[in-house]
Design a protein around this nucleic acid. Structure first.
Lengths: 339, 339
DNA sequence: GTTGACATCCAAAACGTTTTGGGTTATCTT
DNA sequence: AAGATAACCCAAAACGTTTTGGATGTCAAC
């Protein structure tokens, strides 16, 4: 690899001058600058990013840690978000350092990435209740943004972007009620996920507004994956045969719910209406197509990156905390349209 | 941030000794080693990865560049591969540096990442005909592995993993023939993609074997996205009304083909059989579910990482070039099963 | 008491940049 | 012709590690 020293030797200038010439400082004459640049180009010089990072104490890199996967199934929401973040980062002149949690010790990845000075800032996804990761990032004082605000009873004293879960689930539930459903079940995410209470509140609000009773027995929980939705829905439907609709709190679980419905010999949309949340790309192609609450995943990724870059550059944020209004996408799984 | 110097000062040992104690060298006594480790722990020491990288000339990082996106649609195949690679990298003790192509100048991202010494090795996906990226990586001599071999008329003189495209498309086409189809169209990827000729060959082989004529007019091309498949199929079906089946060369295009079929008032599976390639997660949920050729995407990611790590460590590869046999997944879109 | 072996430690160099704090000319002012 | 100013250049330090090549001290063996 050719380095500054090599260019200095072949041009006869000092390392300092070569460095400053390439950086475009104005205390090097136009003639020598051009000469140095030409030589550097012809020698195929590429600055060593690591050395530069060490000296200038910045990396032009954003870190993100992907959650541990305990199943073979892919997390479509997360990978769409990841791609969105990747493109946005590149667009803003940043690279993306992706690290996966390996062991049970979830903090070690963060400590390695952040404490090791490998990134200028971090994006954190899927906030949890009293999230230790957020506490850590606050403590070390590194710039970070979060996809998803804190639980309602905790302070969201950090920059975030989030879809309005309550409003989204409210819209979905109300839609089901308007279609005539009176016995509506819900499959919630685990309680330690920060957005779970919001989604429950949206469900409750819609019931309340329609003078329908809120019954504990209609509420179950599943991990955010398909299998979790399937298990939860199976239990729900066998114990509560009067149900005619199920609100699932993300699309992956909604697909599982649909599986469970069919495995019980019922028809999705006709016998049991199903709705999801996220509008991952699968949703549109599901059988029947899934009525769901759309989050603009790619846009969220993009805005997260833009916020983070602002923070890194110590520029003030005009909207440090953004709540996006999700939109209800009505397809066939709720029975509103004929397929 | 606490550094070696700080630990050296509080313990009274030199920086050298602290460094060697933490690294577990045996020329530091057990007593002092323990003492130093304790102090380091209590001070919350995290080694500065950048400094370490500069000194030791290795980064424990794998690079991957995601292709430019000219549409809002996500590339499901690529993001599944990316997640697989991410997990596998973590599992092997590597981080993943993801960089997206921004400008039209596709090489600049590679030069920045590779020439800048930011990674120990690179994974390259979606090989193209006489791919300049491969030439570059060979030239600079950095370890790399490729997802997808070279075109049949070019040397595949690099380590790769690939699904056997020819066999996969052959299996899909033969299946259609066995179902009684005699007029089968195909939507190929662009010609500059390396696997395109293999897929065409699989199609031709199946026709030949069944004594069916190969007709140029039944062949079209689409970019690898859904819209490309839709356009291609629309043209194909209007110009060749005798067609009863279409082989699409990836799932995204197959979904587009299904759209086109329906927009022409025909029924997928009943009037026109459709098959895809990849088995991305959407395929299973398509309406009707898509008959396709499965590539084990996650496994490919995992094996790519393992190969790359071997190369980085200068360990010989037992199988530097792997061709995986894909399996035909029969669902309803080909009309073989009733939905 | 000298020698060698061993255990334990450390100063300094190196990795490739950027930046600091000048130094040397040449040109301009008076 | 001296002093001031500007234009151009550079040596050395710094970023935080790891590694090299000893230095020092202790102890056993002769």
């Amino acid at each position: 690899m050719v380095k500054l020293k090599d260019i200095a030797e072949t041009t006869g200038y000092s390392i300092t001058t070569v460095s400053r010439a390439l950086a475009g400082y104005k205390d090097v004459s136009e003639a020598t600058r051009r000469h140095i640049v030409d030589i550097a180009l012809s020698m195929g010089y590429q600055p060593n990013a690591v050395a530069r990072q060490l000296r200038s104490q910045k990396t032009d890199t954003i870190g993100i840690i992907i959650p541990a996967h305990d199943s073979r199934f892919s997390d479509d929401f997360f990978s769409e978000l990841l791609m969105g973040i990747g493109y946005a980062a590149a667009h803003n002149g940043y690279d993306l350092l992706v690290s996966a949690q390996t062991s049970s010790d979830e903090m070690s990845a963060y400590q390695r990435i952040v404490g090791g000075n490998r990134v200028d800032g971090v994006i954190l996804a899927r906030t949890r209740r009293s999230d230790p990761r957020i506490a850590y990032l606050k403590e070390v004082g590194i710039p970070f943004v979060v996809s998803g605000r804190a639980a309602p009873d905790e302070p969201s004293d950090f920059p975030y972007i989030d879809a309005d879960s309550q409003q989204g689930i409210y819209a979905a539930t109300r839609h089901l009620i308007q279609l005539g459903h009176r016995n509506i079940g819900i499959v919630l995410p685990p309680l330690d996920i920060a957005f779970t209470p919001y989604r429950l509140m949206g469900y409750q609000r819609a019931l309340l507004e329609a003078n329908l009773p809120y019954e504990q027995a209609n509420v179950t929980y599943g991990d955010l994956r398909r299998f979790g939705g399937q298990q939860a829905a199976h239990a729900l439907l066998t114990q509560r045969p009067q149900l005619t609709a199920i609100v699932a709190c993300n699309d992956a679980m909604a697909l599982g719910v649909m599986q469970a419905v069919e495995s019980l010999g019922l028809r999705v949309g006709a016998d049991i209406a199903v709705t999801g949340f996220d509008d991952i790309s699968v949703a549109e192609y599901a059988t029947p197509p899934l009525t769901t609450v759309r989050q603009p995943i790619q846009e969220i990724g993009q805005r997260l990156v833009e916020m983070l870059v602002h923070i890194i550059h110590r520029q003030p944020l005009e909207h440090p905390q953004t709540l996006l209004s999700p939109t209800l996408i009505v397809r066939q799984s709720c029975g509103a349209k004929q397929s």
